[in-house]
Design a protein around this nucleic acid. Sequence first.
DNA 1: AGATTGACTGCAT
DNA 2: CATGCAGCCAATC
Length: 105
Amino acid sequence: MGQRAHPTSFERLLAVVRTIPPGQVASYGQVSARVLGTTPRMVGFALAALPTGSDVPWHRVVNAAGRISLPAEGPGHAEQRRRLEAEGVSFRKSGVIDLEAHGWL
DNA sequence: AGATTGACTGCAT
DNA sequence: CATGCAGCCAATC
């Protein structure tokens, strides 16, 4: 099996996402800042390629404004919000998450 | 090999 | 508060 001897930055990003505790959220930028050589855009790309039913808590990643970045018209948006609320994450009236209360670190 | 795009971000207008 | 633009890196065409 010709696998690489060390995790790709793609996999490292997913590993970081796995460390976000339930009930908390981190921004794309915050996740990418933990893996040198990566950017917020890569985080979104990595999560978008995630297989259904993966163990990665992709829903705990939101944009820097504390808002869900998935297209509001798609099913992913509603699903992410549902999962977060199930973990106790509260949304403001405007649909913005209170990062002061739920922000990671 | 060059252009385009994406679940971003920060600063300027 | 809404828009625009540059910077960023990998995947795709």
